[in-house]
Design a protein around this nucleic acid. Structure first.
Lengths: 334, 334
DNA sequence: TTGTATGCGTTATCAG
DNA sequence: CTGATAACGCATACAA
């Protein structure tokens, strides 16, 4: 059996297709009696609106595009959870694109906006492709692009972020307040805005405490488990080792911790470590990881709400969410 | 400026819209000279096909729906990665729905198929809603629904899975071969097919080794970190404790491990533990977690390929993927 | 309150 | 090889 169309419903109910359409969208402007008959016919036929036809006619896809650098990464997938919640509450569907932080792949998704597959986009990483300059249909307003998490200072009002520099500073300040004086930092990947912001916060905390910067204490990293392990290899070779380490994210801290532990370094007795993000598994480390919590789910939700507000014609207001220092077992006085 | 349509391109190139369409889909049947002119006009206007119009006319959405129980969960998001890879390679877009294992929410997504938003679906959990009986347009074949991971014995050919019972058996067999005789199991959530299959494998391994079943060694769980912690609370109260524990998934094992460790229980000296899944962070446990690896990314990819093959009209062949015992530090002789 | 008729931007079927 | 033209299924301005 073929799918019923609006014509089938209209025929069965003995009305015009216009009335059927009205029953579905503006039920109150149709007579109660007619409405009942139509709705009955809808049920009887098992009718469903055709999304393509509706979208073609109404010039809206009722869909948002979400571009994520790595969909398999738990950090991003938790943001996705928040987005999904708000999107489905608003009756929007969520199209997901995995960019792998590649400009080329990102450009594929720009096209989703160009061909009207989505009404707006949520970017969970610094945009690499040109997301601006998306031509708009005559009667329509600009296509909103909201950036979440990886937000520079010049990204405009469609952004959701925490104050990464301040958060990093708070993390390092925590170590300082415990009495640490030799504090290292394992950085994020190069050319990433978060890396710069967290490094800045780290340095600022040192400055404020009158501690000097030691370049050999700033270890390279790339947010992955491996780079945490690599950081341990560099750490262990240091002549004069830090007594505490601030990691630009939890995953590196966890990679470091497991390697360090296997090598007989005891945390926090021999070394304090603090991460960033408070991912789900940070609490299962042994010892549990002290870290900075980012409200990931809420960040996603806020981004979606921001997008919705713009779609509704409101003026966008950038969202700054609070972070939180979560003290667990991996930090202690030196 | 409004978005260019096929008419704009046709006008600029001085051809009919039919020719433009042909240049885009079957370039070889149009004269080289015309083609060049048209493609030039396409570039000049910045033309993009309108997805809705195309989908309406061609009766295909070029989209697959993926329904996942919890998008924030790392286990599923890694499967998503594999799906995304294959989907984007095939030029399909990926629509994601979060079901929360709720029938009602799942039904929302069934509708995506009904209204033509997607051409097929990939389910990462046991279907709760009615996914069969989806009416099909006259000239079209049935809408394919592929189930990944949570696959019962009666799910038909559109499935991708590992042999969970055999994998569980292998896990327990590993413990037995180390010399363990008192082996417990922390189960998955009730009414889940994986729970049943893994429990079955656990019992089978005991049977084969001539070990008796001890109901008090089968602890309840629900795949979450918390239930791992709860399992520890029950474990510690046991008069006669198991010397080894097989967990129905890694997350519970990790929850257990961190609690146990905080309570002074040393793994594997006091107790061996083995998980299931080999999630990304299983290697960062201290000690690193022995577990059964499921090829998550490959499972997603295989599911997508299966769906594609059905869409291409081929006869579906159920996919059974190999699991692998990954021995790390959390298991040792008693 | 309801019906008629047009168009949204494509693809595909015809002729030419 | 190319051009008219008719759907695809729906929403809405306009009439009644």
């Amino acid at each position: 059996m073929s799918r019923p169309t609006i014509d089938d419903v209209a025929r069965l109910a003995g009305v015009s297709i216009a009335t059927v359409s009205r029953c579905l969208h503006t039920p109150d402007i149709v007579a109660a009696k007619t409405r009942e008959r139509v709705l009955g016919a809808v049920r009887e036929t098992g009718y469903n609106l055709n999304a393509a036809a509706q979208s073609l006619r109404s010039r809206r896809a009722n869909t948002v595009l979400v571009v994520v650098p790595d969909i398999g990464n738990t950090f991003f997938s938790e943001i996705l959870g928040g987005i999904e919640r708000e999107a489905s509450a608003a009756g929007l569907t969520m199209l997901i694109g995995n960019s792998g932080r590649s400009k080329t792949r990102e450009e594929v998704y720009v096209r989703y906006l160009l061909n009207g597959r989505a009404d707006g986009a949520l970017l969970l990483a610094e945009p690499k492709a040109r997301w601006s300059d998306i031509p708009v249909r005559a009667e329509q307003r600009a296509v909103p692009i909201v950036t979440i998490s990886e937000v520079g200072s010049d990204f405009g009002p469609l952004t959701v972020s925490i104050d990464n520099a301040a958060a990093a500073e708070a993390a390092v300040q925590h170590l300082i307040s415990l009495g640490h004086r030799r504090i290292g930092h394992v950085c994020g990947p190069e050319n990433n805005i978060l890396t710069a912001q967290r490094l800045q916060g780290y340095r600022r905390a040192l400055d404020k405490a009158g501690l000097r910067h030691r370049p050999e204490f700033e270890l390279p990293g790339s947010f992955g488990l491996d780079s945490g392990r690599a950081a341990f290899a560099r750490f262990i070779k240091l002549a004069d080792r830090p007594s505490a380490l601030f990691f630009a994210n939890d995953e590196m801290a966890m990679g470091f911790l497991s390697t360090a532990s296997a090598a007989g370094i005891q945390v926090p007795r021999d070394l304090s470590i603090i991460g960033f993000d408070d991912i789900h598994f940070a609490q299962t480390c042994i010892p549990a990881l002290t870290t900075i919590r980012q409200p990931r789910s809420e960040m996603g939700a806020a981004g979606m709400r921001l997008l919705l507000s713009v779609l509704a014609g409101e003026a966008p207001v950038p969202v700054r969410l609070p972070f939180e220092l979560v003290v667990r077992g991996s930090t202690a006085p030196p």
